[in-house]
Amino acid sequence: MRELHVAKLTSTISLLFQEACHRLPNDVVDALRSARDREESGASRDILDKLLENAELAPREMIPLCQDTGLAVVFIELGQDVHLVGGDLRDAVDEGVRQGYAEGYLRTSVVCRPFTARVNTGDNTPSDIWVEIVSGESVKISVLPKGAGSENMSRLMVLTPAMGREGVIDYVASVVDEAGGNPCPPLIVGVGIGGTTEKTMMMAKKALLRPVGQPSADEENAALERDILERINGLGVGTLGYGGTVTALAIHVESFPCHIASLPVAVNLQCHSARRGVAVI
């Protein structure tokens, strides 16, 4: 049994959000460069150049990559041999978000009541915390500062089993098609297939943590990722919806067994400013 003070989680989470909001991961920058090289539309290429310039400028001048520094999504894989001491886990996570957003001059984007008093909570809490108990005695923290532009266009639908693989491709493509320029393409498309409705959306969201373009380890899922990508890049949406041959940088599929009567599919869209951070304590 390893003892770990929750203050360590607080400081780690604070730094992860500040770093994530200022520095685009290398795999995302590489994917944008590659998109720029193969994009046929001059208008989209012009914007991709500016996005690459933005990615370089943000960490150098310490300006957030995007003003929407997101709702703070935090995934914690907690080793079952870790004993957290010194306070409540959720309080410690929220404190990390509070500190990180204040110290990093990140925008606070949370309102306290969804459909009545939409008053800003002022510190970007409460955060969206997901804890999973895993084996071992380390703690893995993954953060996603998730902006609303892409989150608002995310969708879930339970297909009938008869709709099968083609139905999944059609549905995912239709979500991206209808989203158009709203979610700031080129996108990373997280796709969850199977499980229950909550399980499938969680898979779609977690799929966004995977390095961009790293294929699924499951061969069937990897083949599906290729086919969905080809379909989506034929939609013509392009960068920011200005028209083009690159609408998605990557498709990340996760799947899980499901009920005999169900084929749930969740699509969680990630904008080109695909910010994320990970640390293992």
């Binding site: 046929e40 098609d177 013509g236 949406v237 392009g238 200005y242 028209g243």
Partner: peptide
């Protein structure tokens, strides 16, 4: 509208049927 015109210029497939 640029969104309509841009998409039409680069679209290689028909509209998806579900949804």
């Amino acid at each position: 509208d640029l969104y309509e015109e841009g998409r039409a210029r680069y679209r290689t497939i028909g509209r998806a049927h579900t949804h």
